[in-house]
């Protein structure tokens, strides 16, 4: 029995993190919808700012930063909300927002699936620092104009607010991002441009919850993880590293989506704690791999 064990991974093993992630995205959207739909007001508001159980304020920290530089002041409520949100993502990984919460992720994942089906070449590859520049621009322009400038066009809040409060022509934004990711640039929006993602990336720069290539010696070089990863550049140092180099994926661009854990046939990856002892595989029973 033990000899044939690695051959087949169950459907659940192959789709676990994706399923959990989609459930999380839909559940968070659902919590905002049960108010207007069923009059159950656990959450009021939207991803920009919300009030939970009529008590706990949550505020998007990037919006608070823009508002602060625009007006030079910020209310205690907004600040408390932003600290709560920022604190959470500092711990679990900044871009967990992107892969576990943001509704745009569903759109861009669908675009990626479509582009792969149609075998469309990668297309435009923006400068790796472009999203950081865009983030800097958002802050600078907010300070200059006195408005929360990114909220004029932010697809993240626009889509979510649209679903909760009424979409209007917001479907144009959804369609535009989908088309952009399909025909213009592979993983273009979430992976290269979105300044909200860049902001959350900075928040999670030191976050302890990370994915690690704990069993990198078992890697059979199939490339599935690189294929599925929305930010493939983050995998290389952890997976291809040798000897003492860390197995933890430390790059801030990693969204902790866990898709690599799902797809890897060699079960190389796992969620891990970044600090302290180097995470290694608990029971390295694998014997069928060449190296």
């Amino acid at each position: 029995m033990i000899e044939t064990a690695p051959a087949r991974r169950s459907l659940w093993q192959r789709q676990r993190w994706l399923t959990l992630r989609r459930s999380s995205q839909l559940a968070i959207l659902g919590l905002f919808l049960i108010g207007p739909w069923f009059d159950i007001w656990w959450a009021k508001g939207n991803l920009a700012a919300s009030l939970w159980f009529d008590t706990i304020p949550l505020t998007d920290p990037m919006i608070v930063v823009q508002s602060f530089v625009a007006l030079g002041e910020v209310t205690a409520t907004a600040l408390v909300g932003a600290v709560l949100v920022a604190g959470f993502y500092v711990m679990v990984g900044g871009r967990v927002f992107c892969s576990w919460v943001c509704p745009v992720n569903i759109i861009t994942d669908a675009a990626h699936w479509t582009r792969q089906r149609l075998r469309i070449p990668p297309g435009w590859r923006p400068h790796p620092a472009l999203r950081m520049w865009l983030l800097a621009m958002c802050v600078a322009t907010s300070a200059w104009t006195g408005t929360i400038v990114w909220e004029l066009v932010n697809p993240v809040t626009l889509v979510q607010r649209g679903i909760v409060f009424g979409l209007g022509f917001g479907w144009i934004i959804i369609a535009s991002i989908f088309l952009f990711d399909v025909v213009v640039s592979r993983r273009g929006w979430c992976g290269h441009l979105c300044p909200v993602g860049a902001f959350y990336g900075i928040l999670g720069v030191a976050s302890p919850v990370r994915i690690a290539a704990v069993a990198r010696e078992a890697c059979s070089d199939c490339g599935d993880c690189f294929e599925v990863c929305p930010e493939p550049q983050v995998i290389t140092p952890a997976l291809r590293g040798v000897d003492q180099s860390t197995r933890v994926i430390v790059a801030r661009d990693c969204t902790n989506c866990g898709r690599c854990i799902d797809v890897c046939p060699d079960e190389v990856f796992r969620f891990a704690w970044r600090y302290g002892a180097e995470p290694t595989v608990a029971t390295p029973e694998r014997t069928n791999k060449p190296s």
Binding site: K44, A49, T59, R161, G162, G168, F169, G170
Partner: peptide
């Protein structure tokens, strides 16, 4: 911040949030 909490707490459904477009 365009959160719509004012809309939610208006007892007469007077307020609305501007939609895209």
């Amino acid at each position: 911040v365009r959160c719509g909490l004012c809309v939610r707490d208006c007892p007469f459904d007077t307020l609305r949030l501007a939609r895209f477009g």
